[in-house]
Design a protein around this nucleic acid. Sequence first.
DNA 1: GACGTCAGTTTATGCTGTAAGGAGTTCGCG
DNA 2: CGCGAACTCCTTACAGCATAAACTGACGTC
Lengths: 260, 260
Amino acid sequence: MVVYAAQGDPQKSMALLWRTASPDTERPGPKPGLSVDLIVDAAITIADAEGMAGLSMRAVGDRLGRTAMALYTYVPSKSELLDLMYDKALAELAGFREGDGWRSDTVRWANDLWDFYLRHPWVLQVSQARPVLGPHEYVVLESLVTILRRTGLRPVMLRRLVSALYSCVREPARTAAESRLAEKVTGQSDDEWWYARSAFLKEVSPDFAERFPTLSWMEGEQAFRMADETVSYLEQEAREAFEISLAVLLDGIEVAMKVE
Amino acid sequence: MVVYAAQGDPQKSMALLWRTASPDTERPGPKPGLSVDLIVDAAITIADAEGMAGLSMRAVGDRLGRTAMALYTYVPSKSELLDLMYDKALAELAGFREGDGWRSDTVRWANDLWDFYLRHPWVLQVSQARPVLGPHEYVVLESLVTILRRTGLRPVMLRRLVSALYSCVREPARTAAESRLAEKVTGQSDDEWWYARSAFLKEVSPDFAERFPTLSWMEGEQAFRMADETVSYLEQEAREAFEISLAVLLDGIEVAMKVE
DNA sequence: GACGTCAGTTTATGCTGTAAGGAGTTCGCG
DNA sequence: CGCGAACTCCTTACAGCATAAACTGACGTC
C-alpha cells in the first residue's frame, strides 16, 4: 500500500522534521521515558524486518515496552511517524563525497541509492507526490545536483535528468525489494514460486506458444532460469534493468553535452 | 500500500484468471445473482474513483446491493479479486496494432501505457514481484516484444530493454497518478500544497540557500512554478521525466543496433 | 415431498488508527 | 510545604477492515 505524506498542520510537521522545536527547559510533569528518535528507530527496525504491512502503532509501542497510545505524546499520528522514518533513513545517504568525474560519481550515487532501497524496502512505498520535505531529502538531492552540475548542462535539463535518474533506480529497486520481502514473508523463494506457477500456466493455456509466439521466441532461447544461488532470477533481472537504464541514460547525457 | 499477488491455491487462481472453469451445467440451488465479471467491474470502478484505500469488500458489495460476504461465493479472497481486477484492466491495452517502425511504435506503446496508468492509478500498486500471471499481461508484453523484435537485437538484450521500458513509464506515471489521486482525496491541488509547505520550509531552515547551494542554484533559475491550468507542476515534471527517459532509451537502442 | 446444493445473510473474531478521559508524577509558585 | 498546572502513559472505546463459521431459504433432482 502506498503511504501519503502527513496531512496535519504543516507548520508542526516541518518543525518536527527539521527538529526546530525543543525549548527543553525544565518542565513540570514526569520525565519523558521515550523520545521521537527512539520511536522512529524502533519503527524503522520493524519496517525493515516485516515490511510496511507489519508496521502498526501497537507493534512500535510493544517494542518499546509501551502501549500504542503512548507514542502519540511524541508523534501526532502514524503518517507523521512515517515522514520521520523516511527522513531518518535517508540520513544514511548523507555521507556522499564527490570523486573523479561526473559519470563515475553518478554511477556510485545510483548504486548507493539502490543499496539503500534494498536495505529499506518500505521507503519505496512512501509517495513521491507530496514528497516528505525533510532535510535529508535535500541533502541527497544536493549531492546528485552537485555531481551533475559538472556536465555543464542548463538547470532546466538538469532537473529533468534528476527525475529520470531517480526513476531508473526506483522502479527496478522496487521489484527487487518486493521480491526479497515476499520471500521473507511467504517463506517461498521467487524461483520456487515461479516454478509452481509456470506449471499451471501450461495447464491453463496449452496453446501458449501459438497465442504468444514472439514472447515464446524471446524466452525460449534463454538458459533456463539459471539463477545464482543467493539472488532470485527475478531480482537479477531487476538489477540488469537498472544497470542498462543507467548506462543508456548516462550515454544520453554525454550526447546532450556535445550538442549544447 | 503495495498489494501482493494472491497467495491461495495457485491452480484455482490461474483457472480463475484464465477463465477455464465454468462447467455451467444446470445445477440445483438458487440462480447466481452476480458473476465474477460484475464484481470485478464494480471493484475497478471503485478503485478508479477512490483509490486502493477506498476499495473494501463492503464497498464492492454495497455497490452491487449485496453484503461483503456475498462476494466470497464468486471470489476466494480480496487478493484474488485484485489479481482479477489487474488482468481485466490490462485488457484495455490489448488492441495494440503495429505501425510504421519500431521507434514510433514503441513511443505509441509507452504512451498508451502511460495513459492507462493515469486512468487506473491503483494498477501501479499491484506488486511486480510475483506478478499476476493473467492472459492480458502476456498480451501487452507480446505487443512490445513484437515491436522490438524488428530492431534485430538478440533475445537477451530484448528482455533487458523490456524491463527498462516498463521502468521508465511506471515510475513517473506513479508520481503523476498519485498526485492526481492526492488532489481528489485531499481537495487541495499540488500547487496549493507546495505553496503552503514551501512557506514553512523557509521558516524552518532560513539558511537553506547556504546549506544547499547547488540545489538553490538549479531551482533559482526556473520560471517560478508556472503550472499549466489543468495539470499541476509536479505532474508536468513527471511527464517530462518520462519523455526524456524514453527518448534517451530509444537513442540507446539505436546505438546498440549499430554495434551488433 | 425429501434431500442435496448453492446464493446470500448474520454473527463473531482479531486486527487497524486514534479519540476521550483518567491516573499518577513532577515541576514552579505562593 | 502545599497546591495547581503540566506532562507521560494507561485504559477504554469506536469505527472500519478481511474473513471464518454457521445459518436461511431457494432451487433442481429423485
